[in-house]
């Protein structure tokens, strides 16, 4: 079939082309700085996490004061856990079992000697984390720098990691959430736990919220740092103090070490 309209094509509107070209140019020049600025801002987070460091905590239980909850309050503020609200019909006792807890205080008594110990418990950031082994989708993962955390886009909420964790470190989000922090997105139906203030790591900040709060109280029971750097304060402390891992028998090589337990 012959195309009869071929010869009737309108001549190209040069002016229109110029206008569109100019508009595109102006548009690009207006958007570009934003894009470039954004890229510059994102630079520290764009570099991949390095295994040259291994983040961890050293906890001196002798310095952990009874009745002090500074680390817990700081963690709750840092990660938006203080924004959790109890669903109305729920009893307080049940809510205590269902709300998310990333760090908790535990008070122990030795069965033989009666000695009392206070300590904070959180994710122990194992080198061989059972939660990572059992996660069917790979949502539970360990970063190159030793931080064990949950990818909230992959977590299907099966809770197998909670079954596997020997430290009861993980929480399941049982209720719908409102008003979260942009730095710590959380969502109903996913599992979460202490991630050593991972957004602080990505912005190159020094410490964790719990360690800062403990220091501000003057206790200095929690020291954060790089376990691989022999000169870091945490490595120096671990060299000087006899410390151990909780559930050492499982040989998970935890990133959190305790003195005086």
């Amino acid at each position: 079939m012959k195309d009869e309209n071929r010869t009737n094509l309108e001549p190209v509107d040069r002016e229109r082309r110029t206008f569109i070209g100019a508009a595109a140019g102006v548009g690009a020049s207006m958007v570009a700085p934003g894009v470039i600025l954004h890229a510059v801002e994102a630079a520290p987070r764009a570099t991949s996490v390095s295994s040259d460091v291994r983040w961890g905590l050293a906890i001196d239980t002798a310095k952990c004061a009874e009745g002090c909850s500074a680390c817990i309050d700081a963690c709750d503020r840092e990660n938006g856990l203080d924004l959790q609200t109890k669903p109305k019909p729920l009893s307080e006792s049940k809510w205590d079992q269902q709300k998310a807890v990333w760090i908790r205080k535990v008070k122990l008594q030795d069965n033989q000697t009666g000695r009392i110990t206070n300590l904070p418990m959180m994710c122990q950031h194992c080198e061989d984390p059972p939660c990572v082994d059992v996660c069917p989708t790979g949502a539970s993962f360990k970063r190159a720098d030793g931080i064990v955390m949950v990818d909230r886009h992959l977590c299907i909420g099966c809770r197998y990691c909670m079954m596997a964790c020997p430290y009861k470190a993980r929480s399941f989000i049982h209720e719908a959430l409102e008003g979260q922090l942009t730095s710590v997105p959380r969502g109903k139906g996913c599992v979460e736990s202490c991630n050593l203030c991972v957004d602080r790591r990505d912005y190159g900040e020094e410490s964790t919220a719990c360690a800062d709060a403990c220091a501000a109280e003057g206790h200095n029971a929690i020291v954060f740092g790089d376990l691989k750097d022999p000169e870091s304060p945490i490595s120096q402390l671990l060299k000087a103090l006899p410390t151990r891992q909780i559930r050492e028998d499982l040989e998970l090589n935890t990133g959190v070490r305790y003195a005086g337990v």
């Binding site: 807890v101 908790r104 535990v106 122990l108 008594q109 069965n111 033989q112 418990m121 009861k168």
Partner: peptide, 16 residues
Amino acid sequence: MPLFPGQTILESGFGD
């Protein structure tokens, strides 16, 4: 869970 063998947990903020 046997977090601290040989010790009794007196208080805990997370039902241990």
